[in-house]
Amino acid sequence: MPQFFLNKRLIILLVCIIVLVALIGFSLQERNKLSWPEQFIKDSVGWVQSVFHQPSQAIAGFFDNINHIQNTYEENKLLKEKLDSYGQLEAKVQELEKENGKLRDVLEKTESLDHFNKIQATVIGRNPDQWHEIITVNRGTRHGVKVDMAVVTSKGLIGKVKHANTFTSTIQLLSSPNRINRISAYIQGESKIMGLIEGYDEEKEALLFKINTPDSKIEKDQKVLTSGLGGIFPSELYIGEVMDIVPDDYGLTKTAYIRPAADFYEIDHVIIVERTMIVPEEEEEES
């Protein structure tokens, strides 16, 4: 290496590494808002992306359709079976909803944790390096999006809003193994089994659900929903099903593996969910 480690270059390299570490440190601190140059760039790139994305989505949709036609016969058989029970179920749901409404009237309780407003959004980009599971959608603070709101698809919960800019916002998917990604949830059983979603196991492709009450009985395939406690998530958003239950190292608590209901790979349209019930504001300054 004749010229490579000349002094001047070495110094430049060192300075660069220092700047790099400083920049990483700056961006890893928990910020509620991005700095304005970042917001500006994200919004302008987002605008171009949303223009660019539509034709490419159309092309991809075409190939997707071809893919779907292959399985049509099998799916059709399955769907017909399900359709028979659907009518009954629908009637029952209507009945129950009516009854629920009446009972609420009696109690004079109109607000509930599971009431929410929906903001429809389209995905305009995804992080190509796939280390940080982040997608960008075309709705921002102008449309009412706020940080930490829940994001769902038709199948179930997929993540929460990480940063909201004026016209776009970024969504952190549940599949990122981030410790900050905590969601209060419960397992639907004979009684509610409360716990916290505490991250994602990349090898098993399952969410980790830490159970608060380790004595409770849990079976496989029980459904997991958000509990609406803490934060601004509404309750009763579907997350997934129990896959496996393991006691932790000390045998004091249990962790359940949850198979997420939503597909984290093919996301086109999302719904950003805003809880209508107002919670008392947390104190902003903690220290």
């Binding site: 961006s27 960008t136 940063h163």
Partner: peptide, 20 residues
């Protein structure tokens, strides 16, 4: 830098690595 800002939201990594 654009990659950092728009996609990963961790500044500096690609700015440094791409160039290097």
């Amino acid at each position: 830098l654009l990659y950092d800002i728009v996609y990963t939201e961790v500044l500096g990594v690609y700015l440094f690595l791409y160039t290097l």
